[in-house]
Design a protein around this nucleic acid. Structure first.
Lengths: 218, 218
DNA sequence: ATAATTGTTTAGGCTCACCTAATATATTTT
DNA sequence: AAAATATATTAGGTGAGCCTAAACAATTAT
């Protein structure tokens, strides 16, 4: 049985490894709004429990045991988010905080039943894949919108969930999961991009935004 | 913002005050599976936050602020129990532990939406009343089955939720919330009672059981 | 009324998860 | 290559929430 803090650290390491090569102390601390020295302590502790490998000064990697736990947490988080949006009628920009708390409720039967109740969804409201009972993730070939070239036609598959200002911005522009759009122009100067949704008129997106949109070929 | 432990203590005090006159250190400790000295510490702390009055050696009483918090927790707990049974298909004997965890998820909007989703229920799966948003409880005139006399005809309104062996026993005997039954005989020797459900044949219940059944006139 | 028992509080200690400050290592700049 | 900078670890400290043991208060039995 893990404490909440242990779970949070494992999830942070998992998330950072998803984003890049390694999970560094500093980045973990930033994500958890804590200090690097606290993270070092916890990495040692988790290392002792065989949930991750901590090479001092070179970051952390999860063991398979640790990864299984992280996937379990991600599963819980995304199932609850799905519940909150689809059943309780929350906006997709409001659910992260709440799910962050709910994911720590530890009861396997609960999650199995919730999964069933929701119809075994494969993706959450932000388009992120929900690991199944065994930690298996459905993968898609997606790329970030900012890497697309003028002329490409793509569908929005997922949005990085961490920033809720972003979600409100997308709402305001009428962009959501499943929206199809074509890239009209990319401006080298600032990386901004002119896009045209399938229905609706063209407008431009900053690189900050396009970078957080995962798209797949339409 | 209260910690989980603070919330647990307030709920324990509330529950004990419901059952009897006073909430004593020892009983709180027992309920929380902790030690009396730890409870004393916490009572001091909560006293300082004006959530309860602690008369040393004479137990604790909640202030109105403390009672409001307790009712809030009871509301969360019973709404989640209702969700677990009615939506996820849990048995009524399986939900206490899980709800014990879920009740600590703090988000008012979540509880309001859950309440709405469930259709603003007034009673939980064990027949216990669910406080509304403002902490108001629907009251009924119930009595314990063991206080009934032969010849009385009553309906089961609620079952003390704390003992899950009891709930399984009731399941096995076909007794549930809403079941109507008549009292046939009461044996002075052991306080056991012969009852006959409206449909089905008569059998007897120990005082241990009848004492935990809240009934109302049929 | 005194003694024994039961329950409560106080005193002092422990662990967990954090912190700051100091030190060590790695990386980047000059 | 040396110096400056960024990041990580170690050392030592703090508060929360628990603990045990001892002192204290109230209740019950003799």
């Amino acid at each position: 049985m893990l404490t909440r803090s242990e779970e949070d650290h494992i999830k942070a390491v998992y998330a950072l490894l998803q984003e890049g090569e390694s999970a560094f102390t500093k980045d973990i601390a930033e994500r958890l709004r804590t200090k690097a020295s606290s993270v070092t302590d916890m990495l040692k502790k988790l290392s002792g429990k065989n949930l991750l490998k901590h090479e001092p000064y070179y970051g952390a990697k999860l063991t398979s045991k640790g990864r299984a736990i992280a996937l379990q947490l991600v599963r819980r988080h995304r199932l609850w988010e799905t519940f909150l949006v689809e059943r309780l009628g929350f906006g997709w920009d409001e659910v992260h905080e709440v799910a962050e708390q709910m994911e720590h409720v530890a009861n396997d039967k609960l999650i199995d039943k919730l999964d069933e109740y929701l119809g075994h969804p494969h993706f959450d409201p932000h388009g992120d894949p929900i690991p199944d009972k065994h930690g298996k993730l459905r993968t898609r070939k997606t790329k970030r919108l900012n890497t697309c070239k003028p002329g490409e036609s793509v569908r929005i598959a997922a949005v990085s969930e961490t920033t809720d200002g972003l979600l409100r911005l997308l709402d305001a522009k009428g962009l959501r999961i499943g929206t199809t759009l074509s890239v009209q122009d990319v401006h080298a100067f600032d990386g901004s991009m002119d896009i045209k949704p399938q229905r609706g008129s063209a407008f431009s997106l900053s690189k900050d935004v396009s970078h957080h949109l995962q798209v797949e070929n339409a």
